[in-house]
Nucleic acid binder design. Structure first.
Lengths: 179, 179
DNA sequence: CAGCAAAGTTAGTGACCAATCACTAATGAT
DNA sequence: ATCATTAGTGATTGGTCACTAACTTTGCTG
């Protein structure tokens, strides 16, 4: 397998480990085991543990932005927001991604690099949502806030409540999210 | 100083350390230094590091509930919610508390005890807000979601934006923030 | 003041973990 | 066939950290 493919595999594994245990408690050993390579080899693919973490953050945001782009395709305004909200709700099944996002905010508390990256990517996401929906700032804030609450409910492992919550927050009436 | 007073001091210090660094990365050494006692003595006051963390969570929720109780005193409905929202916004100056809350959600991802406590205390807070405001579920969800977004902005150290956000989310003033 | 309990310390241990180093196996171009 | 590059490993190391054991100090009370 090429180094690039391995790096991709590492990011997938790292997202799970970091999401479950947080940056500090996740071990490079566990990531390596999940990938199926030796632990030292991670340091051939990435310069440091933190580099893996930062790359994982980018990886998650990249995927999320692609997802939003696809969901809002051809839609505008409140319709686009709804579609993106449903798409995010569908992401609930991929818990590692949500957990990873929570872990990122936590890590941002004390690490300058993480905070800088998190700010940049959140701003980018914000602008993307604004561009795709065209709705006003206040509405986007509500949208973002809903997402944050969904993250927390995912962390607390309340999937049923989370679904109801998603519907309530999106202002939906009995629609079934199947993106 | 009595052991009980020390325990209280430990919780104050622990809240800051856990909030800044997260559960795993925070060290008992740093907590002890902040309190002004030797590190091993913490283990006379608490059975383990996790016990300190769990007690810190309780400590934060206790303070928050007291704060909400005071803010909503004599008010009902939307007025009570607004008062509590402003009170929470004021809490932004006590960043350790907000960061501690984020760290709690993160830790809940992988620790059963933390998750159980977090669920219990969040449910309690939810009920308190419902009791004090008397508003419907959807409105309370929005209120909670706003709080979560405020936490994230606190983690990203965006106080100015956070203030505007607080106002916008509470629906107080229709300002036009530009993030 | 004796004695005793609670408050607090110093010194230490075992476990764990990120990162390094020196090495081997496979691949592919000339 | 040979050489060079790429993929990958085992052993180790330096450092950190939660937690323990054994000891000392302080302050109160009969």
């Amino acid at each position: 397998m090429s180094a690039d493919e391995r790096r991709e595999a590492v990011l997938r594994a790292a997202r799970v480990e970091f999401g479950q245990h947080g940056y500090a408690a996740a071990t490079t050993e566990a990531i390596a085991r999940r990938v199926g390579v030796s632990q030292p080899y991670l340091f051939r693919l990435f310069p440091s543990k933190k580099a893996i973490f930062l790359a994982s953050i980018d990886y998650c945001f990249d995927r999320l932005e692609l997802r939003f782009e696809a969901a809002a395709d051809g839609l505008t305004g409140e319709d686009a927001l709804t579609a993106m909200g449903l798409s995010y709700n569908g992401l609930l099944e991929d818990r590692p991604v949500l957990q990873m996002q929570l872990q990122m905010w936590s890590a941002a508390c004390h690490d300058d690099e993480v905070r800088a990256l998190a700010r940049r990517r959140l701003a980018g996401l914000w602008q993307q949502i604004a561009r795709l929906s065209g709705t006003d700032e206040k509405r986007i804030m509500q949208f973002m806030a809903s997402g944050m609450l969904l993250n927390v409910f995912a962390a607390l492992e309340l999937p049923r409540i989370t679904e109801q919550l998603g519907e309530a927050l999106m202002g939906l009436v009995d629609t079934r999210p199947t993106p």
